[in-house]
Amino acid sequence: MAVFDLRINGEQMSVDVPPDMPLLWALRDHLNLTGTKFSCGIAFCGSCTVLVDGEPIRSCIATVESIGDREVTTIEGLSPNGDHPLQRAWLAEQTVQCGYCHPGQILQAAALLEENPHPSDEDIDDYMAGNLCRCGTYQRIRKAIRRVEEGRI
């Protein structure tokens, strides 16, 4: 066990965990940030996506030790009032069904638009390919991203 000081959603938080613990479990079980979801545990589905210095990572395999002093953003911290343009667009398109994968989807989309404010359909498909949704909301995710990209929100 070791104490790690993490910067999460603009706050300083510390956890006393083994260095090889994936960030996912430090967030969920030690810091009560349960918006980040466990689904596959092998970085194949994207449900656990968080941003580290703005880059999307799969927190189910990224260890606490690997984070260092970089800034972690989880769904709880994407916007203070939960009204990030993507969150509003997600509601406008009634995108969500069960909702389990969507914290990861939204964070992945936020990183996409940060990196590439005007993605083509192909860019969107490529960037979002690792975020799986069993309810099948892809068409609405695409529309919601497009809405933000075009400033219609």
Binding site: L33, T34, G35, T36, K37, F38, T74, I75, E76, G82, Q87, W90, L91, Q94, V96, G99, Y100, H102, P103, I106
Partner: peptide, 13 residues
């Protein structure tokens, strides 16, 4: 839906 886009929704896990 509103709580599902902010991470507030509490699923079983």
């Amino acid at each position: 839906l509103p709580d599902k886009v902010t991470g507030k929704t509490q699923f079983g896990m």
